[in-house]
Amino acid sequence: MTGLWETVPRLLGDNRYLVLATADRQGRPWATPVFFAALDEDRLFWVSAPDSRHSRNIAERPDVAITVFDSHAPIGGAEALYLEATAGPADDLLTALDTLNARVPPGKELTGDNLAPSGPLLVYRADVRRHFILIGGRDSRFDNVTDGRLPVTRDQ
């Protein structure tokens, strides 16, 4: 089926928060919402305190799961993007800050003063390995009764 990939950049562009799922060394899960900006469909950025629980988890286990969705969608009308990724501190701060600052309101831009070592925040990035979209239950394009996830790749 063609055209499903188009959901990926649209949801990344339309939504400002993602739910980041991490796990500590013992495998205890943790999920947290974070403001994010996408460089493209394969790299996302956010800022967090390095001592926050999800940041500590990423330091121990860089594999993460991410969900992007509109929490205001009516029941039965939800769209969602699920991502499998590897996360860690951003290696290109200039690109990360430019990407993040393009999404924040005027006057709220991040600067080097906000970032470690002088500031309280660290810029993180997620390198996406796999993309999935939500297929709602009883979707006429599919033979499904309940909601499901469908892996998607760029249209060739």
Rank of each mutant, 00 (worst) to 15 (best):
A90Q: 07
D147H: 15
Q156I: 02
I135C: 04
E84C: 00
T2D: 14
D98M: 06
T111C: 07
T95D: 01
T67D: 01
R149A: 07
E41L: 02
P117I: 01
A59L: 04
N101E: 02
D63Q: 09
W46M: 10
P74A: 15
F132G: 04
A38N: 10
L4Y: 08
A80E: 05
E84K: 11
N144P: 09
N15D: 13
I66N: 13
L11F: 12
P74I: 00
S55N: 05
R43N: 09
F45A: 03
R53Y: 00
F69D: 15
P151A: 06
P117E: 12
T99A: 13
A85T: 02
L20M: 12
R16Q: 11
R154L: 06
A80L: 02
A78W: 08
Q156W: 06
N114M: 07
L83H: 08
R103Q: 15
L122C: 04
T32G: 07
E109G: 08
T22V: 10
G13M: 10
G88R: 12
G136T: 02
L4N: 11
E79K: 11
I58W: 07
D63K: 08
G88Q: 12
D42G: 14
E41W: 06
T95L: 13
R125V: 01
F69Q: 13
L121T: 00
G76C: 07
H131P: 12
A78G: 07
I75Q: 15
E60A: 13
S118L: 06
P89S: 10
A90I: 04
A73H: 15
L94Y: 05
P151N: 12
G119V: 01
Q156G: 09
T99E: 13
H54W: 06
R138A: 03
P33D: 04
R141W: 13
V8T: 12
R141T: 06
L115V: 01
S71A: 08
R25I: 00
R10P: 02
D92L: 04
D139T: 09
E60K: 06
Y17D: 05
N15P: 13
D63S: 10
G107Q: 10
G88M: 06
S52H: 12
A80F: 01
T2E: 14
A65Y: 08
D24M: 09
G76F: 06
D70M: 06
D51P: 00
R138L: 10
A116D: 09
L121K: 09
L115F: 07
W5M: 11
R103N: 11
R10L: 11
T7I: 03
R103D: 06
S52I: 00
G88K: 15
I133P: 11
A85W: 03
D92A: 04
